[in-house]
Design a protein around this nucleic acid. Structure first.
Lengths: 373, 373
DNA sequence: CTGAAAGCGCTTACAG
DNA sequence: CTGAAAGCGCTTACAG
């Protein structure tokens, strides 16, 4: 019947008791304008024979639409390939569909993995990721961040360590009403805004590992004190040692900066001690690699002269020799979770957070073994 | 005089022969609404006593504005802190102020350095960077990219290797009229759309270096054939060798994949040859590090058993031992240049490209030396 | 369950 | 050199 109607000159005809076929009308539209024309909400409304208000309702999943109307509009949208303009939508909604990632982590692999994870979590949500490195020590730090968020009217923001630990920026975000998720080694505030990587648990594994191997003189190279993760990794490490009746001797502890060079420098210092430690836990792989370099410079090798354990499990851990026993932190997964949580946050839904889901784990490699003496 | 006027109840009064002081009016506005109110073009127009059309003209640097009007409006903008909403502007202009970076390079340091460079080049331009990893082998590769560009109505796009070498995506961008800059090892099309890293020149330095050291049996580990940079590095390398009457023996050439593991695997193969090469150029640092690992596995060391040269000069080159002699490629600078060129491209200006500005250079370290035999 | 009108914050012909 | 009106593609009270 409809087929017959459509045959007349390829046009649909509507009479009082016959409805126009929306599918056919949509196909005709696509036919007429070719594949490159981008339809608007007005095109959809015209084809469907409804107001754009109604189309808007189906876009925004309002329940106040008759099922039949909804499904017809849905079909038309599919056929003509309509997708609402995020810019126009954003203008009306007073926000954009952009997620900001604000970071100051110096490790490229951390940044890229995190980005990848966030992007995974954003997939098919219609949101895009805009990246924003920052410098917490800059005078314009807060102002830069604020301008970034306000100008782009960001949908929300994901903060990674160590800027995620900065209460100033968090206060600012709250003040301007910007949704945010903080990724950090430990819960810094109520769960709704946090993704926690539980670095302490990872540090504990490192401590247990070295203790079980029989080490007694055990050293530690930290990150900068402004990095909370470094604290957590140390606390966990000490817990792991304590389980075996050991404790960290302050004279075997040095402050690094999460860089290769700091691992090399602080490592050299520790190696000059007499007696020197038989094992050292570096708070990240980059420093552990530097420590390995220090060993070489001193004419020593791991694990016979010194056991080395790192944290992160990035490529560097398996690019050096011996390969580094380290704690694996699921960075990409953290990014994914952060993105998902941010999306839920805006939907006012209560995120069903599985507590303790992210647990780092130990990866044993060749850089650690029993103590020599 | 004006001061007196302003004293009356803090209001400005205008009489026939006295103009309102726009500065004072602007300050009063800021006073009244507090620091968090975001002004719009209408606020500026109202305070200045002009139409918003005129304000729009000064925002867009139209010459058709009287100097006095322009400077007054400029002052008001500064005082009340107006900055045009990119979303609204974009809606009217039919494009956004977002730059897309489309990449498929597997090296995190490359990606992060590139991003940083692009961001540097975008600074204070009012544009933001949205990142978009892609997979050239995916069926939806082209469609994904197209949707990304069209949905966000991107201002322009920066393509990095190897996706920058994909003619399909470039054709698509041209078809939909999206401005783009391709970053690549060699000019792939007319200069206006290219930033060239001249990898061949870098490869030549590597070749000269090993030739000068006296090596004769020289090997090469390439990247995947789909990476143009690998070709260029090899061609340059052969040029450098040729200058000294040497050429690459095919039996010392292996195909890697720019990864540590491929450097390890292909390196092991080359080391089993008899006689084995006395020097190997790996087309990137990651593979050179893998090659060093292969040496260790074989009970050999660099540079006495084998000289190793890499390419990139990333952190890995100085994290391993011996530190890798390599070719430095100014990735961050390339990103910066790409961003600047893209901005100029849209302004219809002819970019004044300094040809051959980006020249990679050799960095000598401990992994290379004279041949043993 | 649906629609006509106004508005988000800008710009662009068109007049003057 | 400047302005009133319409428009970019959406959404939101407000009616019905």
């Amino acid at each position: 019947m409809l087929a017959k109607l459509l045959c007349r000159e390829g046009q649909t005809v509507s009479t009082e008791d016959e409805a126009i076929d929306p599918v056919a009308a949509a196909e005709a539209w696509r036919q007429r304008y070719g594949p490159s024309k981008k339809p608007t909400i007005n095109d959809v409304a015209r084809i469907a024979g409804v107001s754009k208000r109604t189309v808007s309702r189906v876009i925004n999943k309002s329940p106040l639409v008759k099922d039949k109307t909804r499904s017809e509009i849905g079909k038309i949208i599919d056929i003509i390939g309509f997708s609402p303009d995020p810019q126009a939508r954003g203008l009306a909604f007073r926000h954009s569909y952009l997620i900001g990632m604000i970071y100051d982590n110096p490790n490229p692999q951390y940044v890229v993995n995190m980005q990848q994870g966030i992007l995974n979590g954003l997939k098919n949500s219609g949101h895009e990721l805009v990246v924003h490195p920052c410098n917490r020590d800059s005078d314009s730090f807060l102002q830069d961040a604020r301008q970034f968020v306000e100008r782009q009217k960001l949908f929300g923001v994901i903060l990674t360590p160590s800027v995620s630990e900065d209460e100033r920026i968090v206060a600012m975000l709250r003040e301007i009403g910007c949704a945010y998720i903080r990724i950090a080694s430990v819960a810094l505030e109520n769960n709704a805004n946090m993704i926690v990587s539980n670095d302490r648990l990872g540090g504990r594994e490192a401590g247990r590992h070295l203790a079980k191997l029989g080490h007694k003189r055990i050293g530690f190279i930290s990150g900068k004190p402004s990095f909370r993760s470094s604290h957590e990794r140390r606390l966990g490490f000490e817990e792991g040692l304590a389980e075996h009746g050991l404790e960290l001797d302050p004279k075997f502890v040095r402050e690094g900066a999460y860089t290769f060079q700091s691992g090399l420098d602080r490592g050299s210092e520790l190696l000059q001690l007499d007696p020197r430690p038989t094992a050292i836990f570096a708070a990240n792989d980059e420093m552990a690699a530097g420590l390995l370099q220090a060993l070489r410079v001193a004419g020593l090798t791991a694990p016979d002269a010194l056991s080395v354990v790192g944290f992160d499990d990035f490529q560097i851990a398996i690019s050096v020799w011996p390969r580094i026993t380290t704690v694996h932190s699921p960075v990409t997964r953290l990014g994914e979770l952060a993105a998902e949580k941010l999306l839920l946050l805006k939907e006012q839904e209560t995120p069903d957070t599985k507590e303790g889901e992210n647990v780092p784990w130990l990866v044993e490699r060749e850089s650690s073994g029993p103590p020599a003496n």
